[in-house]
Amino acid sequence: MAKSLLIISRQAPWSGPSAREALDIALAGGAFDLPLGMLFMDDGVFQLAAAQQPASLQLKDLAANLQALPMFGVEKLFVCAHSVAERGLDPASLSLPVEVLDDAALAALIGRYDQVVTL
C-alpha cells in the first residue's frame, strides 16, 4: 500500500514558482495513482478565486491546470476556512469542489496522512 501524501499549497498563484510546484507534485502523484490530498491555505486560497485572467501575464494557466486535478485522480481537495474568510473569498464560489475545514479539522486532516509537505 502506497503511503498517503497531503500537499499543502499556501502561496499565491502568479508571483512565484511555489503554487506551480505544489500542483506539479499533485498531478505527477495522481498520474501514478498515489493516494493524495491537497489543502489550500493562506495565500494559496487565491489560486481558487473565480474568473482569473492570467493571459496577460504570459504564464502557463495555473487556474485551468488546477481544474485537471480530479481528472488526474486527485479528488480529496480541502481549503482552510480561516484563510478564505480572512481574504474575503466566498467559499461557495471557489473554482474547485473543495471541502472547507476549520482549524481543528485541519489538525485532524494532517494527522490522517502518512506524509505531509508544505509549499
Binding site: 498520474a31 494557466d61 485551468a64 491546470n65 485537471a68 488526474f72
Partner: peptide
C-alpha cells in the same frame, strides 16, 4: 478538448478517464 479545457496534456490515466 482536454487541452482547451485544462491547458495541459493528459497522462494515461486522465486520458482514459476523460
Amino acid at each position: 478538448g482536454f487541452y482547451q479545457e485544462y491547458q495541459l496534456s493528459p497522462a494515461t490515466r486522465p486520458l482514459i478517464k476523460y
